[in-house]
Design a binder for these strands. Structure first.
Lengths: 186, 186
DNA sequence: GGACCCATGTAAAGGGTTACATGATTTC
DNA sequence: GAAATCATGTAACCCTTTACATGGGTCC
C-alpha cells in the first residue's frame, strides 16, 4: 500500500467513482497518470479494499465503478492516525535558477514569464473551484471540508509563487539600471 | 540526461564540489539521496560532461571533486534555452485532507500541527540562509543571484503554507462553536 | 558505548512516465 | 478531416527510495 493507494481510498470514501474519475479528481493535488491508477485499483480490489461494478453506457464507453469496503475504511482510519510525511517538490525552474547567471536577461525573463502564466492559470482554476462550493463545506465535519481547505492551499501557494515570479521579473527588467529592490511579501 | 543531471551540472558550473557536497546543496530545493547522485556523477564523467579528481584527506575520508567540462557547459546552455517543465508536488497531508471528515478533531489538529512546525523550521532555515548572503547577490548577473531568489521563493512558500496551517488549525479548534472564518491572506 | 558526521559506492525494490492499443462520440 | 473527451488496460523504461556495505573521527 503506497501513498497514492491511500489517496484513492480517501477519494472513494467520499464518493464511488471510476478510475477515470479518480484520475481527474486527484490531478490538481497529486499528479498520477491513468496507467498508474488502473493497475493500483485492480490490486486494491484483489486485496478486498475495494469492490467494483461495471456500468453499461450507450453513448460512452462502459465504466467500472469502485466503492470502498469496510476493510478499506478500516485501513484508511489506521493511516489517518499516522503523521503525514514531509512534502516533496520537484521543479525544473528551481534547478535552472542555479545557473541563471550563465544565461542572458531575455532568456531569464522568458523562463519566469512562462511560469508566471502557469501560476495565473492555477489561481483562476482554484478561485473558480472555491466559488462553486456551497457555504456548508467551510465547517469541519462536512464531507467536503478537506477539499475546501485544499483548494485554499492551492490558491494561497499559487498566489505566493505568482508574487515571487513578478518580483523576479521586475528585478530582471531593472538589472541594467542601478535600481535595487526587495521582495514585497504580505 | 535527466533533470537532476542538469541540476548537478548547474551546481558544478558555480563551484567544483564532491558528490557529498552536491547532495547537501541540492537538498533544500530537490530531494535526492546520495545513492542516486553518485552513480549519476559517474555516468556524467564517462560522457565527458564532468572531470574528476581525488583529494586525499587525513582526518576525513578522501573525496572526489568534480568539475564541469566545456562540453558540460555547452549542454547546460542548451538546456537553459528550453522552457522549464511544470512543477510536481507530492504531499501526503494533501491526500489525508481528502478524508479529514472521517477522523476526529484532535487527530486533525495533530496532523496540521506537525506540519506547522515543519514550515516554521523551513522559514527559519531560509531566513538564516538569506541573512548570511552578501548584498551583491541581489542583482542579476552575479553568480549567486539564482540561489538568492530560490531562497526567497522557499521563504515565501513556507510563509504562505504556515499561514494556511494556522488558518486550518484555527478553524478546527472553533469547529464545535458556531463561529465561521475566512482565510486571512495578504 | 552510542550516535552522528564525513565520504563513497552497489543492489534490489518500488514509484512514475511514456508509449502502445482500442474505439465511439462530439466539437472545430 | 483533425482533435478532444470518455474509458480501460498493458509493457517497457526510467526515476527514486531503501537497504547493504565500509570505516575513521568527534561529541555526549
Amino acid at each position: 500500500m503506497n501513498t497514492l493507494s491511500y489517496g484513492l481510498l480517501a477519494l472513494l470514501a467520499r464518493n464511488n467513482s471510476s478510475g477515470y474519475d479518480l484520475m481527474l479528481k486527484i490531478q490538481p493535488f497529486w499528479q498520477a497518470k491513468h496507467s498508474q491508477i488502473y493497475p493500483l485499483l485492480s490490486r486494491m480490489e484483489e486485496q478486498h479494499l475495494l469492490s467494483a461494478e461495471w456500468i453499461q453506457q450507450t453513448d460512452k464507453p462502459d465504466k467500472k465503478i469502485y466503492a470502498i469496503t469496510p476493510l478499506g475504511e478500516q485501513r484508511l482510519k489506521e493511516w489517518m492516525q499516522l503523521p503525514a510525511g514531509e512534502p516533496v517538490s520537484r521543479d525544473e525552474l528551481v534547478l535552472k535558477a542555479f545557473c541563471l547567471w550563465t544565461t542572458d536577461r531575455e532568456n531569464a525573463i522568458s523562463l519566469f514569464g512562462t511560469r508566471s502564466i502557469y501560476y495565473q492559470e492555477r489561481i483562476h482554476y482554484f478561485e473558480q473551484a472555491i466559488h462553486k462550493m456551497p457555504e456548508e463545506v467551510r465547517q469541519f465535519g462536512t464531507r467536503d471540508f478537506g477539499l475546501y481547505i485544499l483548494r485554499q492551499k492551492g490558491l494561497a501557494t499559487a498566489k505566493a509563487n505568482l508574487e515571487w515570479t513578478t518580483w523576479v521579473i521586475d528585478m530582471l527588467k531593472n538589472s541594467t539600471t542601478e535600481s535595487s529592490s526587495q521582495p514585497q511579501h504580505q
